[in-house]
């Protein structure tokens, strides 16, 4: 490892140069954020932070399959939606405790991901992208066709609704997904996944089972997407079930990852904060046009700035 250039080790640790300092800093930051609901009862602030946490989890989960494993997933909304659908149904309709419904939502997303992942990962190229786009869209249309239009909470659940618990759950999920990405990057498994991204044949030749590594990355990714969906289902008092499958969840996840920095650990966090804050501003002033701006920004990042904000800032620092 000593002969490796500094840039490479930095990349393997996900763009973080002094991991221990960062770890302490992150724990302190999460702890401070966790007590925010005790200090304030401004619902707008808590709602905004909830959206940021959900975005962090979406970004981290997409980054694990798209950034670490290098597989373009165009149907993240499917896993998010399945998580929401299953959790909502078990919790609000069937009456199971939420913790159980939450886990079931995540596992259902993993199950769906495997149905798509196993056949498409056996072949290389565009099949995974098509398969994920397909499962997202098919689930959205089928939910719209086959399920009741609105999913509303029963009255007893509305009466006991409290925003702080949603807030804490989303924060915990954002932290857990970031921690999972960190642990993955520093594990043998994660190195194998990165190796598959860089060169599948070379990875195979050194004894890395490419199919297995891609599937594990997909399982972790879809688990967090499903849990994020379950959190979404826990948060909303009433929503259209179709909405949880809307392609904009995929757009959000991809956009956040690329704007922040594809394949880095803090990229999705930076991207999520930037994206949610700018979006909330633009959505008010520009209504429809704000998504056009994000679309153009995304294309520019892919073409001209493949490292995202994280890469941009480190390049600016180095120049100075």
């Amino acid at each position: 490892m000593a002969t490796q250039p500094a840039v490479e080790t930095e990349r393997a640790s996900g763009g973080v140069r002094r991991p221990r300092l960062w770890l302490v800093g992150s724990v302190v930051a999460v702890a401070i954020l966790a007590v925010v609901p005790l200090l304030t009862d401004r619902r707008d602030l808590l709602n905004l932070l909830f959206l940021v946490y959900l975005a962090v989890c979406l970004g981290q989960s997409w980054n694990i399959i798209g950034g670490f494993a290098g597989q373009v997933n165009l149907g993240h909304a499917a896993f998010f939606g399945i998580g929401a659908l299953v959790a909502r149904n078990l919790w609000a309709v069937q009456g199971y405790p939420f913790s159980l419904a939450f886990l079931a939502g995540g596992l259902a997303a993993v199950a769906f991901a495997m149905v798509i992942g196993v056949p498409t990962f056996r072949l290389r190229g565009v099949y995974f992208a098509i398969g994920t786009l397909g499962v997202g869209e098919v689930l959205r249309l089928t939910t719209a066709n086959a399920l009741p239009l609105v999913s509303a909470l029963p009255t007893d659940l509305v009466n006991t609704y409290d925003l702080a618990s949603r807030y804490e759950l989303a924060l915990a999920l954002a932290a857990a997904s970031t921690l999972a990405a960190y642990v993955l990057l520093h594990s043998r498994l994660g190195l194998g996944i990165l190796a598959v991204r860089e060169d599948e044949e070379a990875a195979q030749a050194t004894g890395v089972d490419a199919l297995r590594h891609k599937l594990v990355a997909l399982a972790i990714s879809s688990l967090f997407a499903g849990l994020a969906g379950a959190t979404f289902a826990y948060y909303h008092v009433s929503y259209y079930p179709e909405l949880a499958f809307s392609p904009h969840w995929t757009f959000d996840a991809v956009l956040i990852t690329f704007i922040g920095g594809l394949g880095t650990l803090i990229g999705p966090v930076v991207g999520a904060v930037f994206y949610v804050l700018v979006r909330e501003q633009l959505a008010v002033t520009l209504v429809n046009v704000h998504q056009v701006i994000f679309g153009i920004l995304f294309i520019v990042v892919v073409l001209a700035l493949p490292g995202g904000l994280v890469d941009l800032s480190s390049r600016l620092c180095r120049k100075r």
């Binding site: 165009l74 757009f251 991809v254 046009v289 994000f294 679309g295 995304f298």
Partner: peptide, 25 residues
């Protein structure tokens, strides 16, 4: 070829967002 396919997927995915929302506006 591999990078080309991947990048064309991403660019055209961004393009769907642009065209769809522009049409809506």
């Amino acid at each position: 070829e591999e990078t080309k396919i991947k990048n064309s997927l991403l660019i055209s995915f961004g393009l769907t967002l642009v065209i769809q929302n522009a049409a809506q506006a």
